[in-house]
Nucleic acid binder design. Structure first.
Lengths: 330, 330
DNA sequence: CTGAAAGCGCTAACAA
DNA sequence: TTGTTAGCGCTTTCAG
């Protein structure tokens, strides 16, 4: 049980007041060079670091940033978390990763906690949340970054620019003379519908094809749902010859089922995922996917948060370019 | 910017003092039923939650629990993190996941921060840390749980019981008449050596075989290192016919290389991993592995931490049973 | 350019 | 069974 070094100790050692130590740390008012040097020497000498609890109590703001995601076991979010944390560490901010399991009640509970505890920031990929659920953060003045496919009220946004990549995917698929295009999309009640489906639909038209209603099935963003969705598609009167998936977890589930049913991938059916989760290149056949770079998303979110913390008040959108990765499954 | 509800507000509403409110919350001294009811009513009425910063400042203990792991992108640790967080949430504790990238300096920096900020607890899978590095936590009185294959000083430990599972793996491999057993182990300078290698060596003797020095190669716990290690093994004068891997990331790397070299798995070489990371059943051939259940580990760590927080002072060890999963690669 | 001091919201010792 | 109150370590206003 060793004693903690407080600012008072530093002040005494440097022969100044605690106010001066505080200002050396924050730079919020000028300090004479000599004083500053003395204080800095005392700080390193004693190994002082600020007590964040005291600071938080005084400033009314914690050092916690919540990263709220539907599924931390999805490597995409794990990587996003790692990048975010890495970027924010230098600012003395701590990232807590909160798993909602795609449950709206969890999502809302987490937001409430962020408000109550005056979190320094929130980065969230909403899954079943409504835009008005998010508003509480704005009212509480908590810097918020949404990572989602569609805008979500007047807050900072990191969003994919997937148009080109999706077009390339469609090119590849249609060049192989595939016309019956299907999608295993997210659940109907997900936040913002399924923008990946919308984009695909729009672009499909340009390729002279479409996604008929019976070739769009829906389910959670899980491997199981992917398997189930694929099975349903295979039971259609006219089977699809190309299946796009909401994300790579879903695509892998589809692959499981294809194996089980003896459906050849890509022979009979081309399979395209989204995200390029780390396992996408690991399955056989390797997953063709529309890569959305998790690290870049994490870094972009960190940057937006920093800017907010530095006082920016207008909201910004960062578009992160998705990339088409033609591997073996399509 | 809405106002925060403080304990004073609650006290006023309930017609008691803040002390009573505090005691209702903590249960640290008896409160008359009627009073308790009134206070609880006021709390829900006003939507009060304690200000953790104030509490931390007062008690000298934060609500933060650090989970320090070598690689958060490894799904094993991601799942561990999710389970730990889930268990601890109810206690009002926040888990921050800290990635060390297997770097000792990072590991030490994180421990130092935990001490400085008086974290409520630390759960760590040390990778290059020495036992004496950990001691700072004990001296600072911070509840600590080690998740590792070997004991690590007098602290709480969650550790695998892999003897039976490893024996089963060896049985399967030797039953297939494989005698040249190899391992792609962890780096030589890793904390505690490589206990998985030691265990395998010990048991191999019982099966009338052994792991000769030139059939043990070493590297980081990464996919790349796995590929490289496998390549080295394949360049041996007498190639192994069975390869155990430090974990599943490594095993997948080995699989990559086997594909590249045209080495048949399991035809020419049997491959056995460790952990059963989520992707183990995803690769082709599916990975035979010695499963170490991440969720159980996370829950066990949470339980040990809770017990410490409740005052237990002797250290305990929880053994979590590993399980042999015979899939396709061996 | 620097210091004194109030006070953030809570806990726990002490008093009743 | 309950209340009063000091004080945790910091930031920031006000005064010098």
């Amino acid at each position: 049980m060793q004693e903690r070094v407080t600012m008072t100790d530093v002040a005494r050692a440097a022969g100044v007041s605690t106010a001066t130590v505080s200002y050396v740390l924050s730079g919020k008012r000028p300090v004479a060079p000599a004083t500053r040097t003395a204080v800095e020497a005392a700080i390193t000498e004693l190994g002082f670091t600020v007590n964040t609890a005291a600071r938080s109590l005084r400033t009314g703001q914690s050092t916690l940033v919540a990263l709220i995601v539907p599924d931390i076991a999805n490597p995409f979010f794990a990587q996003l978390a790692a990048a975010l944390q890495e970027e924010l560490r230098g600012l003395g901010l701590h990232v807590i990763v909160c798993n909602t399991r795609a449950d709206r009640r969890e999502e809302r509970a987490l937001l409430a906690e962020a408000v109550q505890q005056r979190f320094a920031g929130v980065v969230i990929t909403p899954f079943r949340l409504l835009p008005r659920d998010i508003e509480v953060l704005g009212r509480a003045g908590i810097p918020t970054v949404i990572s989602a496919d569609v805008p979500f009220g007047p807050v900072d946004l990191v969003t994919p620019d997937a148009r080109t990549a999706t077009r390339q995917a469609l090119e590849r698929v249609t060049a192989a003379k595939r016309r019956r295009i299907a999608m295993i999309a997210g659940p109907r009640d997900a936040t913002g519908g399924d923008p990946r489906l919308e984009l695909l639909r729009n672009l499909a038209r340009q390729f002279g094809t479409s996604l008929p209603g019976d070739l769009v099935v829906r389910g959670e963003h899980t491997r199981e749902a992917g398997a189930e969705g694929f099975a349903r598609l295979m039971s259609r009167r006219y089977r699809p010859d190309a299946v796009f998936c909401a994300n790579d977890m879903v695509a892998v589930g589809a692959l499981d089922k294809a194996n089980e049913l003896g459906v050849g991938i890509p022979g009979e059916v081309a399979l395209v995922g989204h995200d390029d989760a780390s396992f996408a290149s690991l399955v056989r056949p390797q997953l063709t996917t529309i890569r959305y770079p998790a690290e870049d998303v994490g870094r972009a979110a960190a940057r937006l948060l920093k800017e907010r913390l530095d006082g920016r008040s207008v909201h910004r959108t960062v578009r992160v370019k998705a990339e088409f990765l033609a591997r073996d499954s399509a």
